[in-house]
Amino acid sequence: MAHILLVDDEPLVAESLSLAMTSIGHTVVAARNGVEAMQRVLEENVDLVVTDIVMPSKDGIEVIMEMRRARPDISVIAISGGGRHGTSDFLKMASGLGAFATLKKPIHLAEFVETLNRSLSV
């Protein structure tokens, strides 16, 4: 089972995604923004990063770009609930920047589990 870094500033979103991941046996470390996330990556030996895009401080796009530079071996799954420019655009950006997969909120349990499995089996 994997050790997964979850980055989201919304406590209820983080909790639901965290519950989903632990329910299938993964361990989860949480961060509330990009700055915290990059610290956790240094401190902990994570196998996968699941990050929100629209966040205060450092956003998800920056997390993806830094991860590509610092740890290209770790896959990133980008999630977004949309914003001024709409969900798909942020996710397209994330995808273009090298995110392994993108998921649009609200994410269903089945698709979330399937995406986690796919990214961990790489």
Binding site: L12, G81, R84, G86, K105
Partner: peptide, 27 residues
């Protein structure tokens, strides 16, 4: 349009726990 973007973001963040936690209970 601007308002819709903001509202959509908030609503999706609320729908996320509603849907996923319900699905977790269902599971």
């Amino acid at each position: 349009g601007t308002l819709a973007g903001g509202v959509a973001h908030e609503l999706n963040n609320l729908l996320q726990p509603i849907i996923m936690m319900t699905e977790l209970v269902l599971a």
